[in-house]
Simulated scan of single mutants.
Amino acid sequence: MSGFDGAGFAGNLAWSAGAVLVVLGATYVASRIAGKHSVIDTAWGLLFVAVAVVSFVRAPDGVSDVRRYLLLALPGLWGLRLAIHIGRRSIGKPEDPRYEKLLAKARGNPELYALRTVYLLQGVLAFVVASPVLVGAFERAPVGPIAIVGAVLWAVGVFFEAVGDSQLEAFRRDPANKGRIMDVGLWRYTRHPNYFGDACVWWGIFLVAADAWPGVLTVFAPVLMTLLLTKGSGVRILEGHMQGRPGWDEYVARTSAFVPRPPR
């Protein structure tokens, strides 16, 4: 059977948006208990888990079960791993300087400003990026080769993201590396293996949805995620923070900024 359950999709938008708001509300409460708004970084992956779970539950009989399960598992596993990783990394840490700088611009009530610029904004971005999940869960066409390629690309992305994060943690734990630039393992081939992996994950999820109509129309979602990673709060801000460190310029000169390749 081919086609798209447009009515089911439309109804699911409200349910998924509600799930995102519930996660954001719980995150805001947790941030006030912890005394730092950077708790939202841990919740970022959970926003996608919420959308994936609700879309899976709301999908009716007649849709592609294989695609439905893929669009539950791929964003779900990715989001849970990311939340656990960031949550562990942030335990005992103070407020992230990014949020201190952002909230220093607040005019009027600082809590309302935080709700708008930190929580609501990230909720909207997550909802837009999750469009392939929202659409793909209601596609009736059977899974084809493009979706399989997408699942493989997702696996490549999770490898780069998880292994890159693990290698960086191990590097930082070694006192001998204090003040040094991480340039071994996957970090030898790209300055941001975790961000590259993140982009692969969402291009892979898009391909699972784009295997059938109208999933191809959600191409804006992985494009947006890639722009956020390379031009938004990812590469640009991190590299600005690294400027001036000993060995950084040499590392930049020989190592790809994003897509892995042999060092120069």
Rank of each mutant, 00 (worst) to 15 (best):
W203T: 05
Y251T: 08
A50F: 02
N194M: 11
V128M: 05
G164A: 06
E161C: 03
A19M: 07
K101A: 15
L82S: 00
Y189D: 12
L102Y: 03
L227W: 07
F220H: 02
G11H: 04
Y99A: 04
Y195S: 07
A19W: 03
R254F: 04
P110K: 15
V22L: 15
Y113W: 15
A141E: 13
F56V: 05
P175E: 13
V152N: 06
A199Y: 02
A253P: 09
L227H: 05
G92D: 13
R261V: 06
G35H: 06
H192F: 05
R58E: 07
D211Y: 03
V118A: 10
K36Y: 08
F206V: 05
L121T: 14
T190Y: 12
V129F: 06
R68K: 15
F159H: 12
F159P: 08
G234F: 08
R261Y: 09
E239T: 09
P60F: 02
Y69K: 10
T255W: 08
A137T: 13
P145E: 09
G62F: 09
A34H: 03
S166H: 14
A176D: 08
A199F: 00
L228Y: 08
W15T: 10
K178N: 05
T230A: 06
F48G: 06
D249F: 01
V133N: 12
F196I: 11
A83R: 11
V49T: 10
I181A: 01
I181L: 03
D249R: 12
G123A: 09
H241Y: 10
S16L: 06
S38R: 09
V149I: 14
R254N: 10
K178D: 13
G240L: 09
R67H: 11
L224P: 03
G45K: 06
D183F: 05
S256A: 14
L153F: 09
V252F: 10
R32P: 08
K101F: 00
L47Y: 00
R264Y: 01
G179F: 01
V135M: 13
A104K: 10
T117W: 14
K93W: 01
V184C: 07
V22G: 02
T226V: 11
W202S: 03
V124I: 15
V163E: 13
V156L: 15
L115D: 01
T27Y: 00
G144I: 08
R89H: 12
T42Q: 03
G123E: 01
Y69G: 09
A73Q: 05
F171P: 10
R107K: 15
M242R: 14
E95Q: 15
G247N: 00
L82R: 04
G215N: 05
I84D: 11
T226R: 01
I148T: 12
R88L: 14
V49N: 02
A43K: 00
T230S: 04
L82V: 11
I40K: 00
W15H: 15
V259T: 12
Y119L: 02
P193H: 11
R172K: 15
I91N: 09
G62M: 03
G25W: 09
F4S: 14
M225D: 02
A130P: 00
G8V: 04
I181S: 08
A199K: 05
S131M: 14
L70I: 09
